[in-house]
Design a binder for these strands. Structure first.
Lengths: 216, 216
DNA sequence: AAATTAATTCTTGTATACACGATTGTTGAA
DNA sequence: TTCAACAATCGTGTATACAAGAATTAATTT
């Protein structure tokens, strides 16, 4: 566990929310959480404050904390922004690419290839994250990298749903290949364009998302 | 003051940081803040937790909170992301524009015209904010609007410095005019391109920023 | 005099106590 | 039976108390 209980609780509760253990709309009772984790209310409250600031929960004065339910439309908006930020990261990566970043992207890309060809969607899910993180890092913009990583985390549950869709694995991987080519060729505009398309949710993929969200 | 002390303190301290009363690197002593605002340490700590989560301060375990010093390079990175998000907002606004948003943009734009022609840089500073907020709102993406507004707030002190630069007022206003034309014409790509240029810091404007930041 | 170590003070982290608004349940009247 | 008013209960908001680590100062040694 982390150096202080508050921070540890923040991560713990955040994971519980992102892994859908605490459902959207669910009330988070301070006392229940405190006894569950074997601590007092004080660090629990501090954790909740932080989660409120991040936007994962909402604390209504005197009425407790509830997990925020983004709803399909807002999730769509979040993907829209994510696509834009990843596009920027890709274009910067293409322009500023150095050897270390290039190697990191190539390595994660080939790991994606293996898990995709093996049809292992759980492994691909993980490797895919590493691939995208490698691109964020290659942008050489620490702020952008943080923003991307944070939004990426928040969208994690929905991305997981998406990978379940038929053929999504091989489609995703071939898109990755094109992105890698563009970045390695130093073509920032093309990398941006491809990443926008790769990350964003267009057309029927949006109805897939809505359907899978409604199914829970 | 807000309904609960913690939230009020968060806003209060946040403003003090953004208005440069609490300087980057400065230590924020819980007891000092508590006595200053006439409250106990508890709500102070909750406020600090939130500011840490937002990224305005850093709480080092057992060693207290300090105001984060972004430094010129990171501020540049933040403007880079801001430019991208505003570009997206502008392109969405152009595509989705309705009467209400159109009127709001036109109104704030004409207010900018007045303060610019009057050479009133303080008034322009305020009207400029409203103009940009009108574009965020016109994007009809609540999430994007929030992200833009938050980053806009954080960059406020640095934008204020920029407006002091010679001729910046009239230059800024004429850029606004072109942006409004593009949005009203429904030309999303052009609106995006213009906003990126308007918000981003290119060439000598970066050295101006560095110089003005170093001057403090 | 400089440096290292020990002791003291100060600040943060967590628990607990208390106050007050919100919620819920009960009683009584229409 | 339904609704309203009141009472009791429960949960959150804030203050205070206590424990423990970090910073600082004093003391001792080289």
């Amino acid at each position: 566990m982390s150096e202080n209980v508050g921070r540890w609780l923040r991560d713990e509760i955040e994971n519980s929310i992102l892994s859908n253990e605490f459902r959207p709309g669910e009330k988070l009772d301070e006392m229940v959480l405190a006894t569950r984790f074997g601590v007092s209310r004080t660090p629990v409250r501090e954790a909740l404050m932080q989660l409120d600031a991040i936007g994962l929960i909402e604390i209504r004065p005197r009425r407790g904390a509830v997990v925020i339910d983004p709803g399909p439309h807002r999730v769509y908006e979040m993907f829209e922004v994510m696509a834009e930020l990843e596009g920027l990261a890709g274009s910067l990566a293409a322009r500023r690419l150095d050897k270390a970043s290039r190697d990191a992207i190539a390595a994660t890309h080939s790991r994606c290839e293996q898990s995709a060809s093996a049809g292992d969607s759980d492994a691909y899910y993980y490797d895919n994250e590493e691939f995208h993180k490698a691109i964020y890092a290659a942008s050489r913009s620490a702020f952008l990298e943080e923003q991307c990583a944070q939004l990426h985390r928040r969208l994690r549950p929905y991305r997981r749903l998406q990978l379940r869709v038929r053929n999504r694995l091989s489609t995703s991987f071939s898109e990755h290949s094109a992105i890698v080519d563009a970045i390695f060729a130093g073509d920032g505009d093309e990398a941006r364009r491809l990443l926008r398309g790769h990350v964003g949710i267009q057309g029927e993929r949006f109805s897939d998302l809505v359907a899978s969200m409604a199914a829970r």
